[in-house]
Design a protein around this nucleic acid. Structure first.
Length: 473
RNA sequence: GACCCCAUCGUCUAGAGGCCUAGGACAUCAGCCUUUCACGCUGAAGACACGGGUUCGACUCCCGUUGGGGUCGCCA
């Protein structure tokens, strides 16, 4: 049997990390088994569905590298099929029309709650003669659910879960306007799409009972259900859009690499021994449902950043430069010519191990491509006082005589210079850093000078001298 | 409230009855490295929610308690 999984989001907003993880697990499971991963947009509620949301979801999945098979299915487009299925149940006496008005039902629930009873639909139209129907009321179609016995779900993650049928009421299949509800649509669609494994959030566990009953009523076999624990927010409550959940696009904007996010999401509720860093191919090879944990997890941004630092470090320089190119161009205010691009690529090996996001990487790289005179921040400016000026002036002469602009030579020259002046290396290096990088933080200063090149290095030193010298002229 | 699910360091987790003096990762702290900041390295601190069973032996199995979460829509 070929494995077929699906990700079935409702297009009411962006793809948040809970949904992203559900999609990831479905994708991984399908890929692991050489099966298919399908997409279904659950847009039966037309009022709350938007095209932008659909686009955002596709976008998020693509960015995460979760490719799907076949064309995405629009649940709404299958309306005729859903109605047909409901009619069949009606014909077979497995469903019935309910004429209770929404207000009437609300009242019923309120009363039940007040009396401390369950708030289930009481089945008031289950056996009532349709001829009693009040005039002018469009009925809903309800499922005639079994009242005796129990319904059992063999969940691939949660194990055997059972509930007494008395706990389940007669769910609405067709709304009074004739459109199908989620419960009906999901069952018919999963069946028609040949879904073998339904991997979804824990919050659907209760739905699995009803859906199982529906499958049986149709005479179909339900898919294998796998309810994965939810991701909780910092406060331990279910993550939702209004509860601090960010869309995957927010993580992209933070400079997170998709592989890092996928890795972090994977480790939330799934493990393979002590493995922490799991590349995509490895994940596909290892992933299976029996390793999915059962407790809810909280999303830890620190850990994501740490993972991100790792993935940035193992991305090659050229690719990284392209990833931060537009950020850099915006920051510096000019396009990066081949010369500067090359400078960045040579700087990357030292830059990338100290960055935990692309945003941070771009910030740390900006000085390499800044236009002279480069901006000097406040801390750096403090390092360019009078003493520093004379030191830099001397250093300018020493470096100016250098024949080969090579890092080793530069280092030797600077060290010798410091030694001859009987000053600590730091007293030379820090002012130099300040004028070359414009900040107090940068990679090793010898390398910075080497990457910058002779002309740019000497020019930046001159710029600094000019500024400190000016007032005295 | 009813029903369902869950429960190991702050966080994510390893643990399939003796391998556990409970392991790893992130975060934290200390030291080393060092021209700055990082990276890296070394080390420290830090958890089996509680109570009963079962067993020669429970983190592991059972029951209960407590705690947390989820669901109870003509939303999905």
């Amino acid at each position: 049997m070929t494995v077929v999984t699906r990700f079935a989001p409702s297009p009411t907003g962006f793809l948040h990390i809970g949904g992203a993880r559900t999609a990831l697990f479905n994708w991984l499971f399908a890929r692991h088994h050489g099966g298919r991963f399908l997409l279904r947009i659950e847009d039966t509620d037309r009022r709350r569905s938007t095209d932008e949301a659909v686009a955002a979801i596709f976008d998020g999945l693509s960015w995460l590298g979760l490719d799907w098979d076949d064309e995405p299915v629009s649940q709404f487009s299958r309306l005729p099929r859903h109605v047909e299925a409901a009619d069949r149940l009606l014909d077979e006496g497995k469903a019935y029309r309910c004429y209770a008005a929404p207000e009437e039902l609300a009242e019923m629930r309120e009363q039940a709650k007040a009396e401390g009873r369950g708030m289930l639909y009481d089945g008031r139209w289950r056996d009532r003669d349709p001829r009693d129907a009040p005039p002018g009321v469009d009925p809903v179609v309800r499922f005639r659910a079994p009242r005796e016995g129990e319904t059992v779900v063999e969940d691939a993650v949660q194990g055997t879960v059972r509930v007494a049928n008395g706990q389940l009421d007669d769910m609405v299949l067709l709304r009074s306007d004739g459109t199908p509800t989620y419960m009906l649509a999901v069952v018919v669609d999963d069946r028609d799409m040949g879904i073998t494994h339904a991997i979804r959030g824990d919050d659907h566990l209760n739905n699995a009972f009803r859906q199982t009953q529906l499958f049986r009523a149709f005479g179909w076999e339900p898919p294998v259900y796998a309810h994965i624990p939810l991701i909780h927010g910092a406060d331990g409550a279910k993550l939702s859009k209004r509860h601090g959940a960010l869309g995957v696009d927010a993580y992209r904007d933070m400079g997170i690499l998709p592989d890092a996010l996928a890795n972090a999401l994977l480790r939330l509720g799934w493990s393979h021994g002590d493995e922490e860093i799991i590349a995509r191919e490895q994940a596909i090879e290892w992933f299976d449902l029996d390793r999915v944990g059962r407790g809810a997890a909280r999303f830890d941004l620190d850990k994501l950043m740490s993972l991100n630092a790792h993935y940035i470090d193992r991305t090659d320089p050229g690719a990284l430069v392209e990833m931060i190119r537009s950020d850099l161009e915006r920051a510096v205010g000019t396009d990066l010519d081949p010369d500067k691009t090359d400078r960045l690529i040579r700087a990357m090996p030292e830059l990338k191990p100290r960055a935990n996001s692309l945003v941070a990487l771009a910030e740390s790289a900006a000085f390499y491509v800044a236009e002279r005179p480069i901006p000097i921040d406040a801390k750096a400016a403090k390092l360019l006082g009078e003493n520093a000026r004379s030191t830099l002036a001397g250093l300018l002469d020493a470096l100016g005589t250098l024949e080969s602009w090579e890092q080793g030579e530069i280092e030797l020259t600077i060290r010798t210079f410091a030694h001859d002046r009987d000053t600590k290396l730091g007293a030379v290096a820090q002012p130099l850093r300040a004028c070359l990088a414009g900040t107090t933080v940068s990679p090793g200063i010898f390398e910075v000078a080497a990457v910058l090149g002779r002309e740019e290095t000497l020019g930046r030193i001159e710029d600094a001298l000019g500024e400190t010298r000016d007032p005295r002229i």
